[in-house]
């Protein structure tokens, strides 16, 4: 039997309207055989978790371009934990190198910073969802 496609919810939280990167990632993942539940802009952490729950998502991908990653990402992780979901949160966007460790420490599963290649995006999501 064929493997289920990986299902990932992609969203941006709050006011941040830069969705170019999120759209490119959505297509990259689709072309790699993923099922992308695309929520786009102006989501709340609660709304994203509610969707992840209904969609039985394998991962949540959050794109952050407004410098709010150190506040928003941990809040997303907390919302996931509060609903007792076992869904890894992956953060992409403008994340300076020096903040990566802090994000990982706060429970973010992986960080895709500026300049991450397409191959890396796909590989990181895959290994995050199904660690070898």
């Amino acid at each position: 039997m064929m493997q289920d496609p990986i299902r990932i919810v992609l969203a941006k939280i709050g006011f941040d309207g830069h969705d170019r990167g999120l759209k490119v990632v959505a297509r990259l993942l689709r072309d790699a055989g993923f099922e992308v539940i695309y929520l786009g802009l102006r989501q709340t952490t609660d709304a994203v978790v509610a969707v992840a729950e209904q969609e039985d998502a394998d991962a949540i991908g959050l794109s952050i371009h407004n410098g709010g990653h150190l506040t928003l990402a941990p809040r997303m992780v907390a919302a996931v934990a509060e609903r007792e979901l076992e869904v890894p949160v992956i953060v992409g966007g403008i994340v300076p190198d020096r903040d990566i460790q802090a994000l990982l420490d706060s429970g973010v599963a992986a960080v895709l910073g500026p300049g991450t290649s397409a191959a890396d995006v796909v590989a990181v999501v895959r290994t995050t969802v199904a660690p070898e």
Partner: peptide, 22 residues
């Protein structure tokens, strides 16, 4: 629909369903 080329899909319909519910 899934893509016939690679089996992937972008499922975006629920954005406009969730919004009025909220």
């Amino acid at each position: 629909p899934s893509s016939p080329l690679n089996g992937g899909a972008i499922l975006g319909d629920r954005i406009r369903m969730d919004e009025p519910i909220h």
